[in-house]
Computed example of a mutant assay.
Amino acid sequence: MTELWTVEVDTSVCVGSGLCAANAPECFSLDTSGRARPPEAPVVAADEVLEAAENCPATAITLRKATGGEEIFVP
């Protein structure tokens, strides 16, 4: 079975660098103010998504398993 993650972005600390959207464009988009927007539905676990969270300069991205909520990456 494919593992799914939920993606959260703390927009109060996001600086709009766009690195997340560059690393994982299938997962992240930027809103009109340039801040990251996560997908509304869980995403398939992928190295690119984890890399986007790890490389966020504002440490604004949290990843959790969609089932059970176990933390994958918390800034």
Rank of each mutant, 00 (worst) to 15 (best):
M1L: 08
T2Y: 13
T2M: 15
E3P: 01
W5K: 04
T6R: 10
T6H: 09
V7S: 02
E8N: 12
E8F: 15
V9Q: 02
D10L: 08
T11H: 06
S12G: 12
S12F: 10
V13E: 04
V13T: 12
V13C: 08
C14A: 07
C14N: 01
C14S: 03
V15G: 11
V15F: 09
V15M: 14
G16L: 06
S17C: 13
S17G: 12
S17P: 02
G18N: 09
C20Q: 00
C20E: 01
C20P: 01
C20Y: 03
A22C: 08
A22N: 10
N23E: 15
N23Q: 15
N23W: 13
A24P: 15
A24M: 03
P25W: 05
E26D: 14
E26H: 12
E26K: 01
C27V: 12
C27Y: 01
F28G: 04
F28V: 05
S29K: 04
S29I: 08
L30I: 13
L30P: 04
D31T: 14
D31Y: 10
T32F: 11
T32V: 14
S33M: 12
S33P: 00
G34L: 05
R35P: 01
R35K: 15
R35S: 11
R35M: 13
A36M: 00
A36Y: 11
A36D: 00
A36G: 10
R37P: 00
R37N: 10
R37M: 15
R37I: 15
P38W: 02
P39V: 02
P39H: 00
E40N: 08
E40K: 07
A41K: 14
A41Y: 05
A41S: 13
A41Q: 11
P42G: 05
P42Y: 09
V44H: 05
V44I: 14
A45F: 11
A45E: 04
A45D: 04
A45T: 03
A45K: 15
A45H: 08
A46D: 13
A46G: 13
D47I: 07
D47F: 09
E48N: 11
E48T: 14
E48L: 07
E48C: 12
V49D: 01
V49E: 00
L50A: 01
E51T: 13
E51V: 11
E51G: 05
E51Q: 10
A52I: 04
A53H: 03
E54T: 03
C56Y: 02
C56H: 09
C56S: 05
C56L: 10
C56F: 05
P57Q: 06
P57W: 06
A58M: 06
A58T: 02
A58L: 08
T59Y: 06
T59S: 14
T59N: 07
T59P: 01
T59R: 07
A60Q: 05
A60G: 07
I61M: 04
I61S: 06
T62R: 10
T62C: 02
T62L: 02
L63Y: 10
L63I: 07
L63A: 04
R64T: 13
K65N: 12
K65I: 08
K65M: 13
A66E: 08
A66T: 14
T67Y: 08
T67P: 00
G68W: 13
G69Y: 11
G69H: 09
G69M: 12
G69N: 04
E70G: 09
E70P: 05
E71N: 03
E71Q: 08
E71D: 09
F73Y: 10
F73A: 13
F73G: 01
V74C: 14
V74Q: 07
P75H: 02
P75R: 06
